[in-house]
């Protein structure tokens, strides 16, 4: 049985359906990316996995247990970093660490927090407030906070969407390194095809809503370890990349119609 199983997940608001029949599984230590146009319900799926939102239908089972609410087993890196602006970098991370291990003393919390701040390359900035940090540094703190509670699974909601290309590249490299070192299970939303090819082991392609589905699951053929400055020399890189881009540009819209036709054809036949 897979580590994370998502079965028949659907979200509806009244009569309008955001997505439905969403099925997929994630293995332990796997990095899975979801790509899709905005409005297809990617963030809603992530929020349901996090336990912050409830599905209209379907179940999420992680590590043999149904997900029924937020839990320290699942760390979340939010789209807008969501740091508490009145706390310093260290205290933001320590807040999470203290939530995870309430019995720890001050020194233990501090040492553990510092370790993860160093991991994302922010040593020297631990006493700064979020308002004194650049966008990339803020997102790094968000990542450190999520990793610091050592969750069974990490959920990343377009963490690099707001960053410039250079900063994004640097943090992606760091994330590759951290994930390789920690064997962390990750579920990440992105709209960046190159990012998905660099980070993900498998890529879920979502069709355009309303009534979005997971149209295709693409295995990343590029071998690990992947480095940003090397992967584009691999022949399979552009083949896969073209496939993904084709999907986003063309098939994500027509998929729905085909699916609809198939279903009505089936119904007629019965």
């Amino acid at each position: 049985m897979s580590f994370l199983q998502v079965q028949g997940l659907a979200k509806r608001f009244g009569t309008s359906c955001v997505f439905e029949k969403v099925d997929f599984a994630v293995e332990k230590g796997e990095f899975v990316c979801v790509i899709g146009h905005s409005g297809c319900g990617k963030t809603t799926i992530l929020n349901i996995l996090a336990g912050l939102d409830a599905a209209s239908d379907g179940v999420v089972i992680m590590d043999g247990r149904e997900v029924a609410g937020p839990s320290l087993d699942r760390g979340v890196v939010f789209q807008g970093h969501a740091l508490m602006p009145w706390l310093s970098v260290l205290k933001n991370v320590a807040f999470a660490v203290r939530s995870r291990w309430p019995a720890w003393n001050r020194v233990q919390v501090q040492v553990h927090s510092q370790k993860f701040i160093d991991m994302v390359g922010l040593n020297g900035a631990e006493h700064k407030k979020p308002s004194e940090l650049s966008g990339g540094m803020k997102q790094r703190v968000g990542i450190a906070r999520a990793f610091a509670i050592q969750p069974k699974m990490l959920l990343l909601d377009e963490p690099f969407g707001a960053l410039d290309a250079l900063t994004r590249g640097n943090i992606q490299d760091e994330l590759v390194g951290i994930c390789a070192a920690t064997r962390q299970t990750v579920f990440m939303i992105t709209h960046d095809v190159d990012e998905a090819l660099l980070l993900a082991d498998r890529i879920l392609l979502m069709s355009t809503g309303p009534g979005a589905r997971i149209a295709e699951i693409v295995d990343n053929p590029l071998p690990k370890p992947r480095a940003r400055h090397e992967i584009h020399h691999d022949q399979r890189y552009y083949r896969t990349r073209n496939h993904l881009v084709d999907f986003l540009v063309n098939r994500s819209k027509t998929y729905q119609m085909e699916e609809y036709r198939n279903e009505t054809r089936l119904r007629r036949r019965n």
Partner: peptide, 18 residues
């Protein structure tokens, strides 16, 4: 209070008093 800060607290299973 910003929803995202409350969501952070929820994912960290912070007690209501804290």
């Amino acid at each position: 209070v910003r929803r995202e800060w409350l969501n952070v607290a929820r994912t960290l299973e912070v007690s209501p008093v804290r």
